[in-house]
Write a protein that binds this DNA or RNA. Sequence first.
DNA 1: GTAAAACTTCTACAGGACGTAGAAGTGTCG
DNA 2: CGACACTTCTACGTCCTGTAGAAGTTTTAC
Lengths: 126, 126
Amino acid sequence: MATLGELERAVMDLLWERPEAITANELRDLLSQRPAADGRGTDVKSLAVTTVLTVLSRLEKKGLVERERNTRPHRYQAVTSRAEHTAELMLEVLGSAPDREAVLARFIGTVSDGEAETLRKLLGRS
Amino acid sequence: MATLGELERAVMDLLWERPEAITANELRDLLSQRPAADGRGTDVKSLAVTTVLTVLSRLEKKGLVERERNTRPHRYQAVTSRAEHTAELMLEVLGSAPDREAVLARFIGTVSDGEAETLRKLLGRS
DNA sequence: GTAAAACTTCTACAGGACGTAGAAGTGTCG
DNA sequence: CGACACTTCTACGTCCTGTAGAAGTTTTAC
């Protein structure tokens, strides 16, 4: 339930960096500009709008995207920010562990120094 | 690459709580004792050993499981602890975010008080 | 106001991951 | 060597994702 496909991901990334809702057509254009995920090759593959719409519908069903149904070309936007979504994902992963503290310990051990500092600040003093 | 199926998950859970490597047959027995994931019904469904073996092979290919090939009934064990694995997953999720600090902020905000305390201890004083 | 254009919804299919397991091959023990 | 245990191969149904044409609906342009 957590994982997104490559295209779904690309769509969400675009929606996340936009404050305003956008249409499927706009999305399709943005998607075709983005360089192919696999790097090499300016593979400007243009998707069919229906493809984008299908993906958007699926994302809507998953609760990640919201659409304005009143305006005619429907406009789509992300329901939560990327940060929120990512944090939720992390919690989901963590949640399924019976040994949460051990997990957190490992986690902390791998985070960069700068981030550790950030965490310290965020946690403040009890 | 991160997500495990339900059965794969069940197998890993068993391997994780066992310090010693065990055989596919033992695993199958343990699996049949476990109550159906969906709760209701003491659904003691017995799997074929080949099913368990297939799953183990897939987990091996994914690098989560290791098998002793020299002993005759091969014995399987988890490569990393559950805590390690979970922490890696969390990092994987976090890693794909361009706004790591924002994610961490949300994350911290949702963790329980007790865990926040633990985190504080783990981070220590810089 | 009607036909064309734009837009949305429905239906579909291929490919990959996973649950599931029989068939076939190989090693083991008596 | 033959029966049995164990492993590997092959296979299939299902679900998810990428992809999009066909069909239906709404808006627009004359």
